[in-house]
Design a protein around this nucleic acid. Structure first.
Lengths: 208, 208
DNA sequence: CCAAAAATCATGGAAAAAGGGGAGTCTTTT
DNA sequence: AAAAGACTCCCCTTTTTCCATGATTTTTGG
């Protein structure tokens, strides 16, 4: 029997995209879609799919909240988060609210199928980078050198590379190197995320 | 009678600089200097100055800790923090530890004199920007608009302007405007400080 | 309704960060 | 002694941020 799939996304483009990606899959039956919380819940009263692909951003509404609502009322329905971006916090919230997986909207046909087939088995599926990031985040202990800690703290205090260089009596490029190493170690995309992760991991503290 | 001034800084350049700035001041007597915690405390056992100009960074040692130590043992000695940068957290710590003032190392002769004459009167002196920042920081409640909060959260999640623009379905320049407004409202120099202040003020939360 | 606030978009330039490489000196550890 | 790690420095390019200035539309509140 085909897996019944339901899509919740406030953009028809996305719904259409998933349709065309999956239309030739015999094992999958697209049993409907919704563009908002209300119509999703309404549909579920009539019929329950096996899996719901659910956008995290539903315009003014939140897919994260909807996920919770759905899982509360229909715990046997698997929810897979959908989002354009690889945002750890959102991924985590979806999972915390009972989602079984997370795929990026630029997922390939193969990846989407893998997500569906994995999740339907009751296992968790996390899209490519999302997975590694989240796992790394949970398991790896981050060890910084003395210098890195110093630089990190000054970065968080709003100092630029050249200001840090003056403060630590080293060259600009040295600070830049440390900064790069910090980004790599904390797996941050940029300074903003670096600071947030550093605080999250208590590598620096707010009143430091 | 001249004001007796003592300098603690781990860089002779700085000590020399202050000397030359103040050598023609009849009202000020430079009664000594130290480059570390131990020699500072040793000096104080022999003789107490009226004011200590104290670097916040003493190499491996902390001026902030020294400040506390000095004020504990010699509460009548005024301590003025010295630092290259305008770091709110450090300024606050110095003040919390009993310092009467804070001047930047690029202070002019006039500013330095003003600091000394203000502090000797038992009043608090905060160098230029330091003052306004700190005060603003303590009193003003920061009110963000709905959009600003959204942008702020995405910034903290490591998204760039163009990514945020895509996520919120607005143009790049709009996001840039919001970003600028956020920097102004939170009085942050850059993204790093923005994120830190936002977390400090609980405008966003670490697991948000 | 009207005024104020918020949200939107733009142009253009300077500064800073991000990302890639490579490389030498030290110290500590094996 | 060799390896490993830390710290230092430099070049280059692209992307992003930061800043100033100005303007229009929408929303909101009295």
């Amino acid at each position: 029997m085909a897996i019944k799939l339901f899509i919740v996304d406030d953009h028809y483009m996305v719904i259409e995209g998933i349709h065309s990606l999956l239309q030739n899959e015999k094992n999958i039956e697209l049993c409907g879609h919704a563009t908002n919380t209300a119509s999703c819940m309404a549909f579920l009263q009539q019929k329950q799919p096996d899996i719901i692909l659910m956008d995290i951003n539903l315009g003014e509404e939140s897919g994260i909240a909807l996920c919770k609502k759905v899982k509360d009322q229909y715990p046997s329905v698997f929810v897979v988060g959908l989002s354009t971006f690889n945002q750890q916090s959102f991924i985590r919230k979806m999972l915390d609210n009972g989602a079984s997986g997370y795929v990026l909207k630029n997922a390939t046909h193969e990846e989407l199928m893998e997500a569906v087939t994995t999740v339907i088995k009751g296992k968790e599926f996390l899209s490519n980078e999302a997975a590694s990031r989240l796992r790394a985040n949970e398991t790896q202990e981050i060890i910084l050198t003395r210098r890195e800690k110093e630089v990190l703290e000054l970065i968080a205090n709003g100092l630029t590379n050249s200001e840090i260089a003056k403060a630590l009596f080293v060259s600009n490029t040295t600070v830049d190197t440390h900064r790069g190493n910090l980004l790599a170690k904390l797996q941050a995309k940029n300074t903003a995320e670096l600071v947030k992760i550093a605080l999250l991991k208590k590598l620096i503290d707010l009143n430091g």
